[in-house]
Design a binder for these strands. Structure first.
Lengths: 211, 211
DNA sequence: CACCTGAAGTTACTATGGGTAATTAACGAG
DNA sequence: CTCGTTAATTACCCATAGTAACTTCAGGTG
C-alpha cells in the first residue's frame, strides 16, 4: 500500500532505490555465484549471479570485479577446500603410499562434489583467465610444493624438484578430475589407486601392485 | 560497365557475388584460424578467422562448424603434432628414463611453439568445450595408453593402470606446459628432467639424481 | 535456347553477455 | 537546511556467436 500513487512498479527511472544500505559483501556474492554455477552450469552469467544475490550487476563489479576476478576468487575457495580435505585426510599420518592414495582420492571427491564449479574455474579462454588458470593451480601447488620440499629434504633427497613436481601433480589431478567428472572413467577410487602407484613407485618400479 | 547505374559499390545487397566457386576447404580455414590465433591470441574471433581465410562467417560454420567444433579440430591438429614430435623423439629407442625425458621435452617444445593455439584449445568454459578439453586430452592419451599397456605387459607388469596413467601424464604435461608458457618456470629442459624423475622412479625412488 | 531448381555464397540481423555510463536517492558535514 | 559525496539503480554500448534473408551461379530439362 505504501505509495501506490507514485506508480507502483511500471517504468522505474534509474537511481538508487529507497531503503537502507545493502548488507551484501563479497563473500555473499561468491556464495550466490556458487549456487548459480551449480544450477546453470559453467556458462553461468554475471547477471544471473547478481539476481541470485538479490542485487544488480554493477554491485558485483564493485565488490568482486570482472568475470576473471570472480573466477579467481572462486578458485581460491575451491583450492582451499581441496587443501583442507587433503589435510584432513592426511591428518597425523606419516607420508606413505597409503596416505598418498587418500590425498588423491580426497581431491577427486572434492571436485566431484563441485563439478560445475570446477569447470567454471578451470575454464575460460581469454588471456586473462588463462593465466588465472595457472593461478588456481598455484594455490594448490604452493602448499604442496612446500610439503614435498620439506619431506624430500628430511629424507635426504634432492629437493629442487619440489616445484616442478607440485605443478605436475596438480595437473595430473586436474586431468583426472575432468576424466572422472565426465563419467567414462572407472571408479574414482581405482583411479586414485592407479595414480598413487605411478607417483609413488614410478613407472619402473614394483611389479604386481594390482590393488 | 556491367550495371554501373545500379550503384557500383555502395550498399551491396545480400546475395552470392559474381565469380566462380570458392576453392576453400576446411583445411584452409583451419590454417587461417591458426594464423589468426597466433596473431590475435586465444580470444580470436570467428569473424577474424573468416576474414583471414578470405571468406565470410557462414562459410566457416558450413565447413567447420561452431566455435567448439573449430577448437576441436584445432585440438586434433595440435595433438597430432605432439604425438608426432614424441614419436620422432623416441624413434627406435628402447623405452628408458632418457627417452622419457625426451618425450616430455618434445611435448613442451611443441606447446611453446604454438603458445596461443594451446591456450585457445585448452580454454573454453561452456559445457561443450569442457568435454572438448577432455576430448583433446583423449587424442593424446589414446596412443599413449596403448604404448604404456604394451610396454607394461611385455615387462610382466600390471597393465590395467595404463589408461589412468595416460590421463594423469597428459594432465601433468598440460599443466607443465601452462607453467612453462607463462614464464615463471625454470628452463623447460629442467622441468622435463624433474618430471621424468618423478614418473620414472616415483616419489620414493632413487636419491641423488640431480640432473 | 529459355527456364526452373537447388546449391553456394553474401549481407544483414538477432541474441546474449561483459562491462560502463547516466541518473537518482540516502547520508553525513557545515 | 542545503549541499556534496557515496551507493545504488536502470539503461546503455559493444563485441561476438550464430542464423536468417536474399541473390547469384550451375546444370539439367523441355
Amino acid at each position: 500500500m505504501k505509495q501506490t500513487d507514485a506508480v507502483t512498479s511500471i517504468a522505474r527511472r534509474p537511481g538508487r532505490p529507497p531503503g537502507g544500505h545493502l548488507a551484501i559483501d563479497a563473500e555473499a556474492i561468491l556464495d550466490a555465484a556458487e549456487r548459480v554455477i551449480e544450477h546453470d552450469g559453467p556458462g553461468a552469467s554475471i547477471e544471473a549471479v547478481a539476481v541470485e544475490a538479490g542485487i544488480t550487476k554493477p554491485i558485483v563489479y564493485a565488490r568482486v570485479g570482472s568475470r576473471a576476478e570472480l573466477a579467481n576468487a572462486l578458485a581460491d575457495r575451491l583450492a582451499a577446500r581441496m587443501v583442507d580435505a587433503a589435510r584432513r585426510a592426511l591428518a597425523g599420518q606419516a607420508f606413505s603410499r597409503a596416505s598418498l592414495t587418500e590425498f588423491i582420492a580426497a581431491n577427486l571427491r572434492v571436485v566431484l562434489t563441485h563439478r560445475n564449479l570446477f569447470l567454471y574455474v578451470t575454464g575460460g579462454s581469454t588471456e586473462q583467465t588463462a593465466l588465472g588458470r595457472l593461478g588456481l593451480a598455484e594455490r594448490s601447488t604452493t602448499p604442496l610444493a612446500a610439503g614435498l620440499e620439506q619431506w624430500r629434504r628430511a629424507a635426504g633427497l634432492d629437493s629442487t624438484v619440489a616445484e616442478s613436481w607440485a605443478f605436475g601433480i596438480v595437473g595430473m589431478l586436474q586431468m583426472a578430475s575432468l576424466w572422472v567428472i565426465d563419467e567414462s572413467s572407472p571408479d574414482p577410487d581405482r583411479v586414485a589407486d592407479h595414480l598413487a602407484d605411478l607417483l609413488w613407485w614410478g613407472m619402473a618400479g614394483e611389479p604386481g601392485r594390482t590393488t
